[in-house]
Protein backbone atom coordinates (compact mmCIF):
# COMPACT_ATOMS: atom_id res chain seq x y z
CA UNK A 1 0.00 0.00 0.00
CA UNK A 2 1.44 3.40 -0.83
CA UNK A 3 1.02 6.45 1.35
CA UNK A 4 -1.86 7.91 -0.67
CA UNK A 5 -3.90 4.72 -0.40
CA UNK A 6 -3.29 4.57 3.33
CA UNK A 7 -4.41 8.20 3.73
CA UNK A 8 -7.55 7.56 1.68
CA UNK A 9 -8.39 4.46 3.69
CA UNK A 10 -7.96 6.33 6.97
CA UNK A 11 -10.19 9.13 5.68
CA UNK A 12 -12.89 6.61 4.77
CA UNK A 13 -12.76 5.07 8.26
CA UNK A 14 -12.95 8.48 9.96
CA UNK A 15 -15.79 9.67 7.76
CA UNK A 16 -17.87 6.56 8.37
CA UNK A 17 -17.19 6.74 12.13
CA UNK A 18 -18.31 10.37 12.32
CA UNK A 19 -20.86 10.61 9.54
CA UNK A 20 -22.26 7.09 9.16
CA UNK A 21 -23.99 6.71 5.80
CA UNK A 22 -23.44 10.35 5.08
CA UNK A 23 -19.74 9.79 5.69
CA UNK A 24 -19.73 7.26 2.86
CA UNK A 25 -21.24 9.74 0.44
CA UNK A 26 -18.84 12.44 1.63
CA UNK A 27 -15.98 10.11 0.85
CA UNK A 28 -17.50 9.35 -2.51
CA UNK A 29 -17.60 13.10 -3.18
CA UNK A 30 -13.87 13.39 -2.43
CA UNK A 31 -13.11 10.52 -4.81
CA UNK A 32 -15.31 11.90 -7.59
CA UNK A 33 -13.80 15.37 -7.22
CA UNK A 34 -10.37 13.79 -7.37
CA UNK A 35 -11.21 11.96 -10.60
CA UNK A 36 -12.75 15.15 -12.03
CA UNK A 37 -9.56 17.09 -11.29
CA UNK A 38 -7.44 14.41 -12.96
CA UNK A 39 -9.80 14.41 -15.92
CA UNK A 40 -9.57 18.20 -16.11
CA UNK A 41 -5.77 18.09 -16.23
CA UNK A 42 -5.77 15.37 -18.85
CA UNK A 43 -8.31 17.16 -21.04
CA UNK A 44 -6.48 20.47 -20.79
CA UNK A 45 -3.16 18.81 -21.58
CA UNK A 46 -4.91 17.00 -24.42
CA UNK A 47 -5.71 20.26 -26.16
CA UNK A 48 -9.24 21.08 -25.02
CA UNK A 49 -9.83 24.72 -24.15
CA UNK A 50 -9.09 25.04 -20.42
CA UNK A 51 -11.89 27.55 -19.79
CA UNK A 52 -14.46 25.28 -21.41
CA UNK A 53 -13.17 22.29 -19.46
CA UNK A 54 -13.36 24.30 -16.22
CA UNK A 55 -16.90 25.51 -16.88
CA UNK A 56 -18.27 22.05 -17.71
CA UNK A 57 -16.38 20.06 -15.07
CA UNK A 58 -16.89 22.87 -12.56
CA UNK A 59 -20.62 22.33 -12.81
CA UNK A 60 -20.11 18.64 -12.06
CA UNK A 61 -17.80 19.46 -9.12
CA UNK A 62 -20.48 21.72 -7.64
CA UNK A 63 -23.19 19.12 -8.12
CA UNK A 64 -21.02 16.37 -6.60
CA UNK A 65 -19.90 18.45 -3.65
CA UNK A 66 -23.32 19.79 -2.80
CA UNK A 67 -25.59 16.82 -3.45
CA UNK A 68 -23.32 14.16 -2.01
CA UNK A 69 -22.45 16.14 1.12
CA UNK A 70 -25.91 17.23 2.09
CA UNK A 71 -28.62 14.77 2.97
CA UNK A 72 -31.30 17.45 3.11
CA UNK A 73 -32.44 17.82 -0.50
CA UNK A 74 -34.05 21.19 0.20
CA UNK A 75 -30.75 22.59 1.41
CA UNK A 76 -28.86 20.96 -1.46
CA UNK A 77 -31.14 22.27 -4.20
CA UNK A 78 -31.08 25.81 -2.92
CA UNK A 79 -27.32 25.70 -2.47
CA UNK A 80 -26.78 24.26 -5.95
CA UNK A 81 -28.83 26.92 -7.73
CA UNK A 82 -27.03 29.68 -5.84
CA UNK A 83 -23.59 28.12 -6.37
CA UNK A 84 -24.13 27.68 -10.10
CA UNK A 85 -25.14 31.30 -10.59
CA UNK A 86 -22.20 32.54 -8.54
CA UNK A 87 -19.84 30.32 -10.55
CA UNK A 88 -21.00 31.93 -13.79
CA UNK A 89 -20.49 35.38 -12.27
CA UNK A 90 -17.02 34.41 -11.07
CA UNK A 91 -16.00 33.37 -14.57
CA UNK A 92 -16.48 37.00 -15.56
CA UNK A 93 -14.66 38.40 -12.50
CA UNK A 94 -11.73 36.01 -12.98
CA UNK A 95 -11.54 36.80 -16.69
CA UNK A 96 -11.24 40.52 -15.96
CA UNK A 97 -8.73 39.98 -13.14
CA UNK A 98 -6.47 37.70 -15.18
CA UNK A 99 -6.59 40.14 -18.11
CA UNK A 100 -5.05 42.91 -15.99
CA UNK A 101 -2.75 40.97 -13.69
CA UNK A 102 -0.13 39.36 -15.98
CA UNK A 103 0.33 36.48 -13.57
CA UNK A 104 -0.15 33.43 -15.80
CA UNK A 105 2.52 30.80 -16.24
CA UNK A 106 5.63 30.66 -14.07
CA UNK A 107 7.74 33.10 -12.09
CA UNK A 108 11.48 33.50 -11.68
CA UNK A 109 11.37 31.51 -8.43
CA UNK A 110 10.06 28.54 -10.43
CA UNK A 111 13.09 28.39 -12.73
CA UNK A 112 14.75 25.52 -10.88
CA UNK A 113 11.64 23.39 -11.24
CA UNK A 114 11.42 24.17 -14.96
CA UNK A 115 14.92 23.08 -15.90
CA UNK A 116 14.88 20.65 -18.80
CA UNK A 117 11.29 21.34 -19.76
CA UNK A 118 10.10 22.65 -23.06
CA UNK A 119 7.84 25.58 -22.24
CA UNK A 120 6.39 26.13 -25.72
CA UNK A 121 3.65 23.61 -25.15
CA UNK A 122 0.92 25.16 -27.28
CA UNK A 123 -1.59 25.45 -24.43
CA UNK A 124 -2.43 28.98 -23.28
CA UNK A 125 -1.18 29.52 -19.74
CA UNK A 126 -3.57 32.47 -19.15
CA UNK A 127 -6.43 30.10 -19.98
CA UNK A 128 -5.01 27.47 -17.62
CA UNK A 129 -4.85 30.16 -14.94
CA UNK A 130 -8.51 31.07 -15.46
CA UNK A 131 -9.41 27.39 -15.12
CA UNK A 132 -7.23 26.99 -12.02
CA UNK A 133 -8.71 30.06 -10.37
CA UNK A 134 -12.26 28.95 -11.16
CA UNK A 135 -11.68 25.45 -9.78
CA UNK A 136 -10.12 26.79 -6.60
CA UNK A 137 -13.16 28.98 -5.88
CA UNK A 138 -15.68 26.15 -6.37
CA UNK A 139 -15.16 24.48 -3.00
CA UNK A 140 -15.55 27.82 -1.25
CA UNK A 141 -18.71 28.62 -3.21
CA UNK A 142 -20.26 25.24 -2.43
CA UNK A 143 -19.30 25.46 1.22
CA UNK A 144 -20.75 28.92 1.73
CA UNK A 145 -23.95 28.06 -0.16
CA UNK A 146 -24.53 24.93 1.93
CA UNK A 147 -23.64 26.73 5.18
CA UNK A 148 -26.16 29.50 4.49
CA UNK A 149 -28.93 27.20 3.29
CA UNK A 150 -28.43 24.78 6.19
CA UNK A 151 -28.01 27.57 8.71
CA UNK A 152 -31.25 29.25 7.71
CA UNK A 153 -33.06 25.96 7.97
CA UNK A 154 -31.61 25.16 11.41
CA UNK A 155 -32.43 28.58 12.78
CA UNK A 156 -35.86 28.33 11.17
CA UNK A 157 -38.59 30.69 12.24
CA UNK A 158 -36.83 31.39 15.55
CA UNK A 159 -34.20 33.45 13.76
CA UNK A 160 -34.29 37.17 14.30
CA UNK A 161 -33.27 39.44 11.40
CA UNK A 162 -30.24 40.51 13.42
CA UNK A 163 -29.37 36.83 13.77
CA UNK A 164 -29.43 36.40 10.01
CA UNK A 165 -27.18 39.39 9.41
CA UNK A 166 -24.86 38.06 12.07
CA UNK A 167 -24.90 34.63 10.47
CA UNK A 168 -24.03 36.14 7.08
CA UNK A 169 -21.10 38.02 8.56
CA UNK A 170 -19.91 35.02 10.55
CA UNK A 171 -20.05 32.63 7.62
CA UNK A 172 -18.07 35.03 5.45
CA UNK A 173 -15.70 35.92 8.26
CA UNK A 174 -14.84 32.34 9.04
CA UNK A 175 -14.75 31.19 5.40
CA UNK A 176 -12.04 33.79 5.05
CA UNK A 177 -9.99 31.94 7.65
CA UNK A 178 -10.15 28.78 5.56
CA UNK A 179 -8.97 30.67 2.49
CA UNK A 180 -6.42 32.83 4.25
CA UNK A 181 -4.77 29.96 6.11
CA UNK A 182 -5.03 27.74 3.05
CA UNK A 183 -3.09 30.44 1.21
CA UNK A 184 -0.45 30.67 3.95
CA UNK A 185 -0.33 26.91 4.18
CA UNK A 186 0.11 26.34 0.47
CA UNK A 187 2.87 28.90 0.17
CA UNK A 188 4.76 28.77 3.45
CA UNK A 189 7.87 27.90 1.44
CA UNK A 190 7.48 30.96 -0.76
CA UNK A 191 7.11 33.25 2.26
CA UNK A 192 10.23 31.78 3.84
CA UNK A 193 12.00 32.33 0.52
CA UNK A 194 10.99 35.99 0.50
CA UNK A 195 12.08 36.46 4.11
CA UNK A 196 15.34 34.60 3.79
CA UNK A 197 16.38 36.39 0.60
CA UNK A 198 15.12 39.70 2.03
CA UNK A 199 12.76 40.68 -0.75
CA UNK A 200 11.64 44.27 -0.22
CA UNK A 201 7.91 44.94 0.04
CA UNK A 202 7.56 46.37 -3.47
CA UNK A 203 9.17 43.28 -4.96
CA UNK A 204 6.81 40.94 -3.11
CA UNK A 205 3.81 43.00 -4.21
CA UNK A 206 4.86 42.77 -7.86
CA UNK A 207 6.14 39.19 -7.64
CA UNK A 208 4.47 36.96 -10.19
CA UNK A 209 3.81 34.01 -7.86
CA UNK A 210 2.77 36.08 -4.84
CA UNK A 211 0.47 38.26 -6.95
CA UNK A 212 -1.13 35.19 -8.50
CA UNK A 213 -1.72 33.47 -5.21
CA UNK A 214 -3.10 36.60 -3.57
CA UNK A 215 -5.38 37.23 -6.53
CA UNK A 216 -6.65 33.65 -6.36
CA UNK A 217 -7.47 34.09 -2.68
CA UNK A 218 -9.24 37.36 -3.44
CA UNK A 219 -11.28 35.61 -6.14
CA UNK A 220 -12.36 33.04 -3.56
CA UNK A 221 -13.20 35.76 -1.05
CA UNK A 222 -15.29 37.58 -3.64
CA UNK A 223 -17.00 34.30 -4.52
CA UNK A 224 -17.88 33.57 -0.88
CA UNK A 225 -19.07 37.11 -0.27
CA UNK A 226 -21.35 36.96 -3.30
CA UNK A 227 -22.61 33.49 -2.42
CA UNK A 228 -23.95 34.38 1.02
CA UNK A 229 -26.54 37.09 0.19
CA UNK A 230 -27.34 35.30 -3.05
CA UNK A 231 -28.20 32.06 -1.28
CA UNK A 232 -30.30 33.92 1.29
CA UNK A 233 -32.17 35.59 -1.52
CA UNK A 234 -32.84 32.22 -3.18
CA UNK A 235 -33.99 30.63 0.10
CA UNK A 236 -36.39 33.52 0.53
CA UNK A 237 -37.70 33.24 -3.03
CA UNK A 238 -38.24 29.51 -2.71
CA UNK A 239 -40.11 29.99 0.55
CA UNK A 240 -42.12 32.84 -0.92
CA UNK A 241 -43.13 30.67 -3.86
CA UNK A 242 -44.39 27.88 -1.63
CA UNK A 243 -46.59 29.76 0.81
Amino acid sequence: MNTFEALLLALLVLMVAVGGRQGVSNFLAVMINFLLMMLAVILMAGGFNPIGVAAVLGLVVLATTIFLSTRDSDVAQTAFVAALLVMLGMLLVIGIGVRYAHVAGFGTEDSEALEGYNLLIGVSFPHILIATALFSTLGAIAEAAVAVAAGMKTLGAAAAPAGLTQMAAEIIGTALNTLFFGFFGGFAGLFLWFTQLRYPFWQVLNNQIFARELIEVLFSMIAVTLTVPFTMWIVQRRQGGRS
Binding site: M15, V18, G19, Q22, G23, S25, N26, A29, V30, N33, F34, M37, A40, V41, M44, V61, T65, I66, L68, S69, T70, R71, D72, V75, G105, F106, F125, I128, L129, A131, T132, A133, F135, S136, T137, L138, G139, A140, A142, E143, V146, A147, A150, A175, T178, L179, G182, G186, S220
Partner: peptide
Protein backbone atom coordinates in the same frame (compact mmCIF):
# COMPACT_ATOMS: atom_id res chain seq x y z
CA UNK B 1 -20.97 19.16 11.22
CA UNK B 2 -21.96 16.33 8.90
CA UNK B 3 -23.53 18.81 6.51
CA UNK B 4 -20.56 21.15 6.61
CA UNK B 5 -17.64 18.74 6.55
CA UNK B 6 -18.07 17.54 2.96
CA UNK B 7 -18.10 20.98 1.34
CA UNK B 8 -15.36 22.20 3.66
CA UNK B 9 -13.10 19.35 2.65
CA UNK B 10 -13.89 20.28 -0.94
CA UNK B 11 -12.72 23.87 -0.33
CA UNK B 12 -9.18 22.83 0.53
CA UNK B 13 -9.18 19.90 -1.85
CA UNK B 14 -9.97 22.13 -4.81
CA UNK B 15 -7.43 24.79 -3.74
CA UNK B 16 -4.56 22.37 -3.16
CA UNK B 17 -5.25 20.34 -6.30
CA UNK B 18 -5.92 23.28 -8.62
CA UNK B 19 -2.64 24.84 -7.51
CA UNK B 20 -0.81 22.02 -9.27
CA UNK B 21 -2.59 22.38 -12.63
CA UNK B 22 -0.09 24.61 -14.39
Amino acid sequence: GRNVMGPLIAVLFMIFMADTFT
